[in-house]
Design a protein around this nucleic acid. Structure first.
Lengths: 341, 341
DNA sequence: CTGTTAGCGCATTCAC
DNA sequence: GTGAATGCGCTAACAG
């Protein structure tokens, strides 16, 4: 049972079972051809006895297809991405696929690198999660690498903006933020501030613009915007800056929940009473953040579900033109934005 | 430049460059043998022109080694695991390795399945993250699969308890919880409750026992324990149960931060004023949770760093006996546990 | 229904 | 320093 060096191979199993490798192969993987039950049983027994595990590389090479999908995210430690990753992972499991995780840390060149690595792996598909950048050159570079990947027979789907020529789950950031702005205006808020995130991230930009448009449409003054990193600390310092500016505002929209949390902390640091002195809203509805105080008004995105949908697109037969499905967030009003006046 | 069907192969590149496949191979991967500069340049140019990406499966087969490491976690959506995953991912990146992510959702059989899949992939290593179970049968089954994986040439490291015969980063849960208990006792708390998590998870059990021992050592009565799931909702319902029991307690220890957050919510539901009416502490120091109110006393674990360390163990030359490194958490006192009396 | 054989793409002996 | 040939483990024709 114990082998000397490397691994047990199919021919070891075949020899042990007294059949040919072809028969062993057919018995173990269930090919189109059928194998006599007794032989099949003998092979299975031999495989078990030897603790045989097929060499996936060899199978991939012989079959010309792997069972691997790549998941490319900005930062797996960010709950936005880890929630999506959980959905992808679960769905992959159900489909019998393996997930290769790649963290780009937001660096464009990493994205290209991973895409190429995935092509080298002959991955069956790649799921690109996260905001595109305003930089068109970068989008073009990704498009080109994506084309190469697809040319090699892989499928690609993106979760973000409809900027790549691939199946995409488009998140309607502008619409969601707009709906939030209108709702807040309706609740009596009128002087808005926006913690706008990095100006080169489409997601941040769209949410900012959508909110701005919604506010203006509702008859409010254009919100005062402060940019900053798309993180807790980014929200903290943007909020501090906004507070320092001395502008009169009654409600702040952070372009994601994580920033909103930083903003809340910044307000506390200044001794502000929330939500009495200032209303704050976020975007995403991160599960881990649902218990902060005051509970956060936000735009809910079905993150885990998005991951699942992405896997479905990836396993579906490829169409001729890129499919686009749209996901609109739903506004969730909580304690952080009480009715005003 | 555009190929008809599948992918560009090395022999395509060789032909394009007017050299043999052997030379092309040597030029592109830098083998021990050296290639004349001009030829090397020609090969590189041809590869670029054709947008060649080596077939990793074929390379793996020829070389007998892959560049893939498996990361097996309970739930990537849980910030505890995603923080570790981020560390692993970053370190893998630096080492030029690829990460295969596996979510077991806490199901033991999934762990075995993934380990086997990883063996099939001829993964270079597996990193097992997450509590072992009290069930010895399961540990034995994992040990056996781990042995098979190692026998096939893979390295295994665990982050949890020293229960598997592999390199392990042991988290000193009992010691950390004990230190926390002593500190809290010192601060004047004496009647403790514990939200103890699932009784079959070693991590939960060790933290519970460690806390209990620490409390008793400090001269307090044994804490009153309530079990529940290792999640936010588990913490919520365990806390509710504790409150319903009518026991007199002044401080509650939840065996992880996520549960502590649930507990805080449960207290709020009952109209309790925190931290005035009740002190609450957690374990882990989850980054996303650092801004909740009241800020949470906890035992900090260097999660991202753990991931990095695990990768280092995995890439280090294998020793004869399993290495064990120990990580002790550091007690962090915050607002949720004010001095008592 | 089973066995023999020819690749899959690449790294690596071995000759030159 | 280069090229031709072998084999990694497996699947899928192809014969029998």
């Amino acid at each position: 049972m114990v082998q000397s060096g490397g691994s047990v191979t199919l021919s070891d199993v075949a020899r042990e079972a007294g059949v040919s490798v072809a028969t062993a192969s057919r018995a173990l993987n269930g090919s189109s051809r059928t194998v006599r039950p007794d032989l099949s049983a003998r092979v299975a027994a031999a495989a078990r006895r030897l603790d045989y595990a097929p060499n996936a590389q060899a199978q991939a090479m012989a079959r010309g297809a792997t069972t691997m999908v790549g998941l490319i995210v900005h930062d797996i430690a960010d709950p936005y991405f880890s929630a999506i990753a959980a959905g992808v992972s679960r769905a992959a499991d159900d489909a019998g696929l393996l997930v290769m995780l790649s963290n780009t840390l937001g660096r464009p060149e990493q994205e290209l690198r991973y895409l190429k690595a995935l092509r080298a792996q002959r991955g069956r598909a790649a799921i690109l999660v996260g905001s595109q950048r305003t930089d068109r050159d970068h989008s073009a570079a990704v498009s080109s690498e994506v084309a190469a990947f697809e040319h090699a027979g892989g499928r690609v789907v993106a979760i973000s903006q409809a900027r790549l020529p691939v199946d995409t789950i488009v998140i309607e950031n502008a619409a969601g933020a707009g709906a939030l702005a209108r709702k807040l205006a309706e609740m009596g808020h009128s002087r808005f501030g926006v913690l706008a995130g990095p100006s080169d991230l489409l997601t941040a930009r769209d949410r900012h613009r959508g909110f701005q448009r919604g506010a203006v449409d509702a008859g409010c003054a254009p919100p005062i915007a402060v940019h900053g990193a798309f993180t807790r600390d980014g929200g903290h310092s943007a909020m501090a800056q906004l507070l320092d500016s001395g502008c009169q505002i009654d409600c702040v929209f952070a372009v994601n929940d994580v920033m909103a949390v930083g903003a809340i902390a910044a307000c506390r640091d200044r001794g502000l009473q929330l939500p009495k002195d200032l209303a704050i809203a976020g975007f995403d509805d991160i599960a881990t953040l649902r218990d902060i105080t005051p509970s956060l008004t936000t735009v809910r995105l079905p993150l885990t579900e998005l991951g699942k949908q992405a896997m479905e697109l990836v396993t579906a037969p490829p169409g001729t033109a890129p499919k686009r499905s749209r996901v609109k967030g739903t506004v969730v009003i909580r304690d952080s934005t009480p009715a005003h006046r």
